[in-house]
Design a protein around this nucleic acid. Sequence first.
RNA 1: GUCCCCGUAGCUCAGUGGAAGAGCGUUGGGUUGCGGACCCAAAGGCCGUAGGUUCGAGUCCUACCGGGGAUGCCA
Length: 552
Amino acid sequence: MTIQDQLSDLIHAALTAAQGAGALPAFDLPAEIPIQRPKAGYGDFASPVAMALARFAKQPPLAVAQTVAAHLPTGGLVGKVEVAPPGFINLWLSANWMAAQVERILQAGPSFGDATYGQGQRAQVEFVSANPTGPLTIGHGRNAVLGDSLARLLEAVGYQVTREYYYNDAGRQMELLGESVRARYRQLLGQTVEWSEDYYQGEDIIEIARELQAEFGDTLADEPLDRFRRFAQEVITETQQAALTRLGIRFDVLFNEHNLTTSGEVWEVVKGLKEAGVAYDAEGATWIRMTQFGGEKDRVLVRSNGEPTYSLPDIAYHKNKFDRGFDLMVNVLGADHAAQYPIVAAALKTLGYDTSKLHVVSYQFVTLLRDGQVVRMSKRKANYVTLNELIDEVGPDVVRYFLLMRSVDTHIEFDLNLAVKQSDDNPVYYVQYAHTRIAGVLRQAAERGIELDPQADVSVLSDPSEMALIREMLRLEEVVTLAAKQLAPHHLCFYATDLATAFHTFYDRCPVLPPKQTDAALTQARLKLCAAAQQTLARTLGLLGVTAPDRM
RNA sequence: GUCCCCGUAGCUCAGUGGAAGAGCGUUGGGUUGCGGACCCAAAGGCCGUAGGUUCGAGUCCUACCGGGGAUGCCA
């Protein structure tokens, strides 16, 4: 049970007691009493419930709050209660209770901060889902780290999570890729080729052609297109996976769109939609009646040449997800692809699925800034910075942190000059440095022959900075729950810096080891506090997929 | 035209209907080193504008203004 739940129950009990004593008239109490984080100086927690109940109590909010405070048992969790206008009930946690939490945190280990609301349920996260037509860009990078951190968060709240990558290695784009490579290959052989504007112009295509030439010489000149396509795809897929691996990202399922056609699932969708009257044939094509779902116009599902559009397999894919029985499905999509979602949702609803289980996390673009200049990224053009190159330049931790620290709704300007900087204004190092400092203290303790005493009494902790650090650590579960429920990992980044600040302040004020610290009991208690803080920092960074180094 | 996102401190951004926040920058302090990649403090706000809902709106609704994106029988 979270602290908020416990406080909620306490206030509920106080309200019931007040009614029983006749201090408040009888009226139905809300099942859950709201508990918030007040602004600084107004306690650890606060409840505005008196304001909402004033009309039923037929008393001013402040009077209701005072009555609740009078009936609230102190001791244990709550150390102090105060009432503030216009009717807030402010609660302070007791110092003894807080100090004791250090033991609880250490005993819980790495699972401290985890929640359980997803227990026994299965979640699926689909992310990246880039086709093998070129190297991953920074946009894909944002998608990748978002999906991965979301998966980690969902695991932290109890879900069993499947990480999934959906791709299409057939179709016109892949044909173009094959043609582009073949054209480059023939150019390398000195042949004159017709170059189409549609061809991929990236340096990587020439590189692939060079590899072909190095391995096969000129023997492939008259090979069928498919040979070039397959080779290119292999190389590109390898490059893509390499970037993801460097970011610590792996997938449980690689789902090939093609399977949906061969299995006939695609045509089942068409049949189902037609039976429901939502799809119809016209002008030689098959359409979905999006106008019926508030859409601007109807959309094509099957082209007049008999080929499905992108939408149809996408619907079939999501139907497939539902049929696999997931309780929660998260789809990480760039804002440029998000317009596709209404079609999928409309179709699935028609087919009788509960689309409330499906969540789209749509993120805004990433632009790269170097020396204050925007580095453009365009897929077909040669001029772009790949995800691999970005990782080369600033390292995986900075890439992950910078792409996760902003709300998905915010357009990111990735400032390379700032990202490379190993100093004050780089928040990644600020957080990692806190972890490193703790590791340093523990290392020093060992070198000075100080043994950690498991029986050490943490109740000697009382400095305001010690309490503040414990208070921050106790927020972890709340932050994890919020980030998981909102599918918003950026909360973890803000929390990480708050936690790091709390530690740095403690470190500045409270010497741990002799000779600065001469009280052996305090040294032991503070070592425990350090260990708990280290564990909490490591867990927070772990959920972001960022390393927690012992030395920097 | 329609739809989506954004508009909060000089800059970059948090903010779960309840008592305006952080980092950077600026100004001023702190160390005879448990690694200063740190700490503390100050200054700095008609929360884009105008209405509405509510006991209470930065948060919800409507209209408008400004910026970005999406609007293919491409993926």
